[in-house]
Design a binder for these strands. Structure first.
Lengths: 348, 348
DNA sequence: TGGACGGCTACAAACGTTTGCAGCAGAACC
DNA sequence: GGTTCTGCTGCAAACGTTTGTAGCCGTCCA
């Protein structure tokens, strides 16, 4: 016995269409009538049925948000920001988790397609062509990967990786390991590309270890290989892997940063919580969530015109990176980007 | 130009009702007809419009999941488990975040009410009467709080707090601080009740510091007061606060566990990542998420009969708790519950 | 051989909205 | 005083499904 628009119409002595317009087209109805209708609706506790509305208007006022792994600390701030931003625009958010599986990803997009006005696809593992294909079923905004012809929000991790490598080289490291992320990740390729270039430019050697699952275990698993290879510094695909690596190194008696420097990526909450505090590349995840929602909601051609939003990253220097064997006189290692607090707040 | 049931009907030469039944009531349609219809539907890429289905059946096949703070590491595993479990039963999940605000909480329940078949209300900050009132609008399952007459899933944190206090007393602590959580949290009251009782029973003194926001800052803020009060051990409302506290103590030159022991609650991923690794009360969050979904989906009277599910907690002893001043001969502090790995997997 | 029945399908109403169109009153204009 | 216009409201169709009912045809049993 939920109260419908008809109940409100009856109780306020007007036609349903007038009630409808009182809500969705106020300028078409007499102000007096409208306030009366709204009062009655309020009293009856009327809430429009969005399914019915969706049926006729074709717009659900829902959006989908698909991530690889909710439990990965990179995503919650993004989800939180996207959800809250969407809600402020009267949209609700379906959240789904693919468990890093491209198949599940596709399935989820298809399953959600008819139920949402668009989908935020975060860090997809599918191929570009698959994504393009799906974008014909439902509007898509891709996060953390540029897909030709589709609106996307990416972090400039090329720059981030370059900053990280330059930082390590400046500290005196010449043999750097890149702890790679998952296969299929654009971010991973981008980091690899930029890090390789930066290392070559700076005259350092960079070795890639991977691909690996983007988890602590993935990082830990490469600890031996990296130590054995004689690298004195590591750039990890993300904070989680950096943490796993540091732990495994520590377990093997290798001290960070004394013997090996480790730099993470993402600046998740985790990076300030572990010891040594993690030097890492900060990515503006909350801003990315909001930007993606904005792109999705400004429908039509606009979406094409602002097709790619690139957000800046920055290096946050903490305690997990220290002097390397080739250290020359130079700036103190604490110099560089502003201290944590400032960096973190100013990024917003 | 999305393909509807009518397109399928036309293309396969049958009536729409036959198409509909081919999907939702297979036994009512001739097997041959059905396979043909399904083939045509597949070929056309037909996906039933859930809004339309919801309109007529009254069931949306969506559920709402409302949490206090997505970024709090306690919630992601719960969300993940709930989402995946719901999806396996062909339900999709709206996730929303209240920012620990009771007002937003109510608003969200109402906003979601018409759009879902039920809502999982996690760690609500509202009053019981408010919750009961809302449950007349939409089926509710409460997590982390028992509400009379409503189905609920709770963790036995009374037991957890007791175990923690007994552990600390066994280590020789007689002056214990309880780092309280947020006002309005049932869990907080429960912990307080059980810890107080356990301390009294064991002949120890327990002082409550709080309420506090359930964040690192909330924990850090009480570090001075706790140290000044001369407590030698602390039981914190959650891991996040424990971490903040440990950090602040460390910053003041107070060593954990040498000078003060700290025990957390929740066993979030964080607790194994920080140093010292956190002794904490493990809560089965993933199991809670699944149980809550199950309770919600077994509609009708059943929901009443299994109105309260209580999940067991257990103490996971790690490195943040150590001997206190009144240590007597006794079991080594490493004894007790099984080691991490076992405890963590067996809990599932 | 007639009737009952069972298996299958078509018909049409309904779900709760939105929205183009028509109608109506009064104001404004000439 | 007629016409046009404006502001408001009612009417009814439509959105894409589900589902109760009725109809058809063939089979079975007596």
């Amino acid at each position: 016995m939920p109260v419908t628009i008809r109940d409100v119409a009856r109780a306020s002595g007007v036609h349903v269409s007038t009630v409808s317009r009182s809500f969705s087209a106020p300028h078409l109805v007499n102000p007096e009538t409208r306030t009366h209708v709204l009062a009655v609706a309020e009293e009856l506790g009327y809430r429009p049925n969005r399914a019915a509305r969706a049926l006729i208007t074709g717009r659900t006022h829902n959006i989908g948000l698909i991530v690889a792994d909710i439990a990965n600390p990179f995503f919650p701030p993004l989800i939180k920001a996207a959800e809250s931003h969407a809600r402020s625009r009267d949209y609700h958010v379906f959240v789904a988790d693919t468990s890093e599986d491209a198949g599940v990803e596709e399935e989820l997009v298809l399953a959600l397609a008819k139920q949402v006005d668009g989908i935020l696809l975060c860090s997809p593992r599918m191929s570009n062509t698959q994504i393009e294909q799906l974008s014909r079923e439902v509007p898509l905004v891709v996060v953390n990967r540029p897909v030709p012809g589709l609106p996307a929000v990416v972090m400039d991790l090329g720059q981030g990786a370059r900053l990280a490598v330059e930082h390590l080289v400046a500290l005196g490291h010449r043999s750097i390991a890149l702890l790679g992320g998952p296969r299929g990740s654009w971010t991973n390729r981008e980091i690899r590309r930029a890090a390789t270039l930066a290392a070559r430019t700076a005259g350092a050697e960079l070795t890639v270890f991977g691909p690996n699952p983007p988890t602590e275990e993935g990082g830990a698993a490469q600890a031996d290989a990296i130590a054995r290879a004689g690298a004195t510094a590591v750039l990890a695909y993300n904070d989680l892997m950096a943490v796993g690596l540091i732990d495994a190194l520590d377990h093997n008696g290798v001290k960070v940063p004394d013997q090996i420097s480790v730099v993470g990526i993402d600046d998740t909450a985790l990076s300030r919580r572990i010891r040594p505090m993690l030097t890492t590349v900060a990515t503006p995840t909350a801003a990315a969530g909001r930007a993606a929602v904005d792109m999705l909601l400004q429908h039509g051609d606009d979406r094409r015109t602002t097709a790619l939003v690139t957000l800046q990253t920055e290096l946050v220097i903490r305690d997990s990176s220290g002097p390397g064997p080739h250290r020359t006189a130079g700036p103190g290692r604490r110099q560089g980007p502003p201290p944590d607090g400032v960096a973190l707040t100013s990024r917003e």
